[in-house]
Design a protein around this nucleic acid. Structure first.
Lengths: 159, 159
DNA sequence: TTAAGGTAGATGCAAACGCATGAAGATTGG
DNA sequence: CCAATCTTCATGCGTTTGCATCTACCTTAA
């Protein structure tokens, strides 16, 4: 019955939230972050994954932060010389954000240490099969979360 | 080889983070929250799961918030009449936190609507098997995250 | 018993956040 | 072509957060 499936979905989501909170706290407590907050690192990491400069709103998709807060976070990182802001030649409203060399170096430094902690925690808790399953499930959920409200309403109509 | 397993662990963690951010944004955008922020709701929900009053630090385990921030968040909820603070008779330092009737009612109201959105998103993205797997994996990760640094160092020694 | 150390929670203060809004460039329809 | 609308990002402002620190209470051991 639908009721049980809905209930299981909520319990699974709660388990995800609990895992997220517990591990984020653990990672935040590690003495690896230097001058960076985890949010700042998140921005540097996102930029490091892309070769081409990112627009602010593209950066915003991956970061759980309001647009003004992200705008100012980028401000601060730019003032510290970790990010470079340039006007977008193809869109006068936009900015193109890229890591500076110092920013890339900083991201690599912290990222390398953080990856060790992540690997230690995840591999200690899960089997290979579970790790693979988590990745697949995470991607599916992310894709669902990225769907626009309009798309979602369409789904509703279909249901 | 260990390298590949570590790498997969990091990719799985990243997928979890992406899913978390995407879905949190979606849920936050729903017009169901009334006067509550999601963090406030999180506190009310955590209290609603327990019949006995909770200590502040117990509440803090589930919430991704610093101790002072949580202390003040509880302050505000108490001022709004949603939470009741009482001194702990067994520990003069502590407080016992419980929902008031208004707080419980508010939690049920918002929680019911939120559960619908969660169920819709999760069931649209995942099969029954995946939902069950996510719950199991989430619990394992949360247990790992909850391990104390001392325990973790022990694990390191064992590895 | 009492001094030393640990834990729970509160508070001062600067930094960061979200909401509302504004300015400026892009897009669309008549 | 241009007015209306939308999108992107920045800024004003009140609220919330985190860090450091403080107080009060509990625990342990000499």
């Amino acid at each position: 019955m639908t009721r049980s499936r809905s209930r299981r979905a909520n319990e699974a989501w709660e388990a995800l939230l609990t895992a997220h909170a517990a591990l984020m706290k653990r990672f935040a407590a590690e003495p690896i972050w230097g001058e960076l907050s985890m949010r700042e690192y998140d921005v540097l990491y996102t930029l490091s994954k892309h070769d081409e400069p990112l627009r602010l709103f593209e950066l915003g998709r991956g970061v759980l932060l309001s647009q003004p807060a992200l705008s100012r976070l980028v401000d601060r990182l730019a003032e510290r010389g970790l990010i470079e802001r340039a006007p977008d030649p193809e869109d006068g409203r936009g900015v193109r954000l890229a890591l500076t060399e110092a920013g890339r170096e900083q991201q690599r430094r912290v990222g390398g240490r953080h990856a060790v902690d992540v690997a230690r925690a995840v591999t200690a808790a899960l089997t290979d099969e579970e790790i693979a399953a988590l990745e697949a499930i995470g991607r599916k959920l992310a894709a669902q979360g990225a769907a626009t409200p309009a798309q979602r309403h369409h789904e509703e109509a279909v249901l």
